[in-house]
Design a protein around this nucleic acid. Structure first.
Lengths: 229, 229
DNA sequence: CCTTTATTGTGTGAAAGTGACGCAAAATAT
DNA sequence: ATATTTTGCGTCACTTTCACACAATAAAGG
């Protein structure tokens, strides 16, 4: 049994938030200590000996940003020997999503200097290999949103259809025909249209609210449905 | 800087092979030492302090089975605190594919008792949480084969079309119409039809050989092509 | 208050893609 | 030489995708 290995294990949590006004954003923290003191970084930290990786990711995120996470999955493990200048630190990166309402709250719940949302297309300089991690996360989000219903995890429970459309246009980076998009999404049979109109936010006719029905989705999944946008 | 953590880092390599006769198979080794002495397991071992994770996976695979790998990507990281009875061992699992020709050779190149191919539907009892790892790997293969051209990595460089078809039927576990399948695959424009017939293997009209053109694929990718079966 | 501006809601037709289907040709097996 | 196995190939119905325009409802601005 080998005991000569010298590798530390950490987790990092790439968390996406979204609102129509600010677009798709990523939660970063400003490092308080060296190395990379004062540089922006992905929230994370060392894994405790008796906690699972996912628990560690959720815990660090809670400690460092106070954000309530809504969806969390493993992203990728970064293990290049020299990715940390101190000693070898392997990082298991996680991929998280928060609802739009949580996204709005951040500035109220945490030390304004410590954690901040950045639009995913205007990211600051980052510590370590965190730029690379974010790229993998962004690709995961882009790729996954077309074949899994994770977009709803970024919206509020009830949302106007245009929010969903705007989310997809932003991520896929191309215009989408409103009518065709709505037809396609509605034909999946996993959205319920509510008899409730969105609260006015500026000019324009107020839209109906919709809601993702996860139970229906899971049922349809069992029957072999194929989610695809 | 924390130094109290006690987690060892290992890699495991799930390798798939394929031949028309034996179907989709996974390479396993019989453990020589406790724990789980005599039980089948995924090839793998501890990461050296100065090698990357992928290098470690390739090295362990080479040392334990001698198989020449053709494609290797990271699969998932398994880190439950109690997944190893000795101490906490985190395992970064990799996902590998070998060409059909390599697959055939195994018995000649390694100690017959130590490494063996098992059909992916008839797996033996496995050590640790390796059953779970294999399930993730099989799902990855099933999922990925429909939207990425990795199936060709399991076939020989030149292959008859029926091999490809048989591979897809096996993995997707459903019959495929031969004519529609060929039409679809050929319409992607990434296969070259050679003026060479397959060597006879039993009765039946010998088929033409085909070859995957990776350069063409990469070119088409850039122009926005979308591989999907 | 009236006009302008912004946003939502809705249907049709052309084009492309998917899926079902059967028979002749070329080889080995008996 | 006859039977059996495997390959090669085209059409038509159906489904899905894509392009496209105008009326309704609200707030904003004068």
């Amino acid at each position: 049994m080998k005991v000569t290995q010298n590798i530390q294990v950490a987790v990092d949590a790439v968390v996406f938030g979204y609102s129509k006004e600010e677009g798709v954003s990523i939660l970063l923290i400003k490092r308080k200590y060296d190395p990379f003191k004062g540089t922006w970084a992905i929230p994370g930290g060392f894994v405790l000996d008796d906690e699972s990786l996912e628990t560690a990711a959720a815990r660090e995120l809670q400690e460092e940003t106070g954000v309530k996470i809504n969806y969390l999955e493993q992203l990728y493990t970064f293990g290049k020997p020299d990715r940390d200048p101190r000693t070898r630190i392997l990082s298991v990166a996680y991929f998280g999503l928060v609802k739009s309402s949580q996204f709005q709250k951040l500035k109220a719940t945490t030390d304004a200097e410590a954690a901040e949302w950045f639009n995913f297309k205007q990211l600051p300089k980052l510590a370590f290999d965190h730029k690379k991690i974010l790229n993998v996360a962004i690709e995961r989000l882009r790729g996954k949103i077309v074949y899994q219903p994770i977009g709803f995890e970024l919206l509020d429970k009830k949302f106007p259809f245009s929010d969903l459309e705007h989310l997809y246009t932003t991520l896929l980076d191309r215009p989408i025909d409103r009518r065709n998009f709505k037809k396609k999404v509605m034909s999946l049979g996993i959205l319920e249209e509510l008899n409730e109109k969105a609260k006015s936010s500026g000019a324009g006719r107020p839209g109906n609210l919709f809601q993702f029905n996860k139970a229906t989705y899971n049922q349809l999944l069992k029957n072999g449905m194929h989610f695809e946008i």
